[in-house]
């Protein structure tokens, strides 16, 4: 039997918005599904999130937004990841995101965008797909 390391995901919020209902719930769902969650909590800078991802050797970063700050910060995060040659670390975005911005976030570098009302199985199967192998 080959030992298979559990996939590691850094979850957090960046900037000043503190609405973390969704993040807390998704965090539990991911742990229940066998992921290792590094919970970075609130009030992070993009730099700090990327630093945590490096230190924790994470496979993905999941960031939750609510107040309309998603484009500003996703752009920063994606550029930081590229700049540090961490393009293989997947960027996953969730939260209150207007429909028109979902594609914009993907263009900026998000692997997936989850908006409110996405069911647990959908989230898990999409993240499984992104991180498989």
């Amino acid at each position: 039997m080959v030992y298979k390391r559990r996939k590691r995901i850094v979850l957090g919020k960046v900037g000043l918005d503190a609405h973390d209902n969704g993040l807390r719930i998704v965090s539990k769902w991911l742990m229940d599904s066998g992921y290792e969650v590094i919970y970075a909590g609130l009030y992070n800078t993009p730099e700090r999130i990327v630093q945590v991802a490096i230190e924790e050797n994470a496979d993905a970063i999941g960031i939750s937004f609510l107040g309309g700050e998603h484009l500003f910060y996703t752009d920063k995060l994606a550029k930081l990841l590229k700049g540090k040659d961490m393009g293989d670390v997947k960027l996953i975005i969730g939260g209150v995101i207007p429909p028109d911005d979902v594609d914009k976030l993907k263009e900026l570098g998000a692997s997936s965008v989850f908006t409110p009302g996405t069911m647990r199985d959908t989230i898990i199967s999409i993240i499984d797909g992104i991180l498989k192998g």
């Binding site: 900037g15 000043l16 918005d17 009030y43 800078t45 107040g67 309309g68 700050e69 500003f72 910060y73």
Partner: peptide, 22 residues
């Protein structure tokens, strides 16, 4: 806005992305 609630002016580095949003 969130920055005002937390006692930050708009030019604080951590506030810049959230100024005036909520």
């Amino acid at each position: 806005d969130v920055a005002t609630k937390l006692g930050l002016d708009p030019d604080h580095p951590l506030a810049q992305g959230d100024v005036g949003l909520q």
